[in-house]
C-alpha cells in the first residue's frame, strides 16, 4: 500500500517531495515501527545473539560460535519433531482448506437456509481460545470416561483411542481443523464476495452450470486467498504448540517433550535452562518455515499470473 501511494504522489509532483524530508511518513508508521522493533526485531536479534553462546549451570557462559547450530542440524529429536509437523502439514492442511472452501462455496451459493447462523456456527470454534478448545477436546477424547470412552463402552470394544500414540497426531489434527476451518472459510467467503457479478452473468449466458461456475470462475478467482490461507496454515503447522502441550498431561506417553519443534524449544529452555540451544532451534525452525512459506507463495502467485 505504501508503495502504491508513494508512486501516485511521485507522479503528481516529482520535485516537491525533495524539500519535505520523509520524516512525516515516519511519524505515521512510528506506532507500528516501535512495536515491530521492540517485539519482533529486538527479540530475534537477541535470540541470534543467544544462539552463539552456551550458558551452563556449572562453568558459566561462553561463546561457542556455530556449535549450537551444528548440534541442531545433527539432532535426531529436532528432525523427528520437524518430520512430525511436516506429516501433520501434508495431511491436515489440505483437509482443512478443502472443508473451508466447501463451506465458503456453500455459503456463497445462497442455497443454504439460515446462512448467517451457519456462518457463525462454523466460525465459532475460532473464537474459543485454543487453551479452552484443547481442554474441551481432552474431555471428549478421554478413553475411560470421555465421549470416546462412552462410545467404546457402547460398542463393547475399544474402537476409539484418540489419546494413544498411533492416534494422537490425527486427534490433534482434528482439533486444529475444528478450530481454524471457520477462520479460513471467512477468508474464502470474503474473496468470493468480491467476484464481479458480470462474470456469473457471462457464465450463465454461456450455459455454465453451478459446478462449472465453481471450477471455472470461483476457485480461480479466490486463488490468491487460497495461497494466503495455505501460507498461514503452513506457519501454523510448524508452530504447533498449544494443542499437544495441553494434551500432554492426558497422554504423557504419546506426546514427548520434543513432539513438535516449538515444544522442543520450549522444553529446552524452560525445563532444561538450555536457552542458547533453544534459540538455535528456534532460528533454524524460523528459517525453514520462511523458506517453505516463500516457495509456496512464489509458486502460488506465479500460477496466478500465468
Amino acid at each position: 500500500m505504501t508503495t502504491l501511494s508513494a508512486a501516485r504522489r511521485k507522479g503528481q509532483s516529482p520535485t516537491a517531495r525533495r524539500d519535505r524530508k520523509d520524516w512525516k511518513g515516519w511519524v505515521f508508521i512510528a506506532p507500528f515501527a516501535i512495536v515491530f522493533l521492540a517485539m519482533i526485531v529486538v527479540p530475534v536479534v537477541y535470540a541470534i545473539y543467544l544462539s552463539f553462546f552456551r550458558d551452563q549451570l556449572v562453568g558459566g557462559n561462553a561463546f561457542v560460535g556455530f556449535a549450537n547450530y551444528v548440534s541442531v542440524l545433527s539432532d535426531p529429536k529436532f528432525w523427528g519433531s520437524l518430520g512430525r509437523v511436516s506429516l501433520f502439514l501434508v495431511v491436515q492442511v489440505p483437509i482443512m482448506l478443502v472443508l473451508s472452501l466447501i463451506a465458503a462455496l456453500a455459503l456463497d451459493s445462497a442455497r443454504v437456509h439460515g446462512a448467517g447462523f451457519f456462518r457463525i456456527m462454523v466460525f465459532l470454534p475460532y473464537a474459543v481460545p485454543g487453551v479452552v478448545a484443547a481442554l474441551i477436546w481432552g474431555f471428549i477424547y478421554g478413553d475411560q470416561f470421555g465421549l470416546a470412552g462412552n462410545i467404546n463402552h457402547l460398542l463393547g470394544f475399544d474402537l476409539l483411542q484418540p489419546l494413544s500414540s498411533n492416534w494422537i497426531l490425527g486427534s490433534i489434527g482434528n482439533i486444529v481443523t475444528w478450530e481454524f476451518m471457520g477462520y479460513n472459510m471467512l477468508i474464502f467467503y470474503a474473496a468470493l464476495k468480491v467476484i464481479p457479478t458480470e462474470l456469473y452473468e457471462a457464465a450463465e449466458i454461456d450455459g455454465a452450470g453451478a459446478i462449472r461456475t465453481v471450477f471455472s470462475i470461483k476457485i480461480p478467482a479466490v486463488r490468491g486467498a487460497i495461497v494466503i490461507a495455505t501460507i498461514f496454515s503452513i506457519i501454523g503447522s510448524f508452530q504447533l504448540f498449544n494443542e499437544p502441550q495441553l494434551l500432554k498431561p492426558l497422554a504423557p506417553n504419546a506426546i514427548s517433550t520434543y513432539f513438535t519443534p516449538n515444544m522442543y524449544a520450549y522444553n529446552l529452555s524452560f525445563s532444561g535452562q538450555q536457552y542458547n540451544y533453544a534459540a538455535a532451534v528456534a532460528i533454524v525452525m524460523g528459517i525453514i518455515t520462511a523458506v517453505i512459506a516463500y516457495v509456496v507463495q512464489l509458486r502460488g502467485t506465479s500460477q496466478e499470473n500465468r
Partner: peptide, 20 residues
C-alpha cells in the same frame, strides 16, 4: 540430582514405550 527438575521433565520420553 542437582538438575532433577530437568530430569523429571524428560522422564516420559524414555519411559513411554515401556508403559505403552
Amino acid at each position: 540430582l542437582p538438575y532433577q527438575v530437568y530430569a523429571n521433565s524428560v522422564f516420559s520420553d524414555s519411559f513411554s514405550s515401556a508403559y505403552t
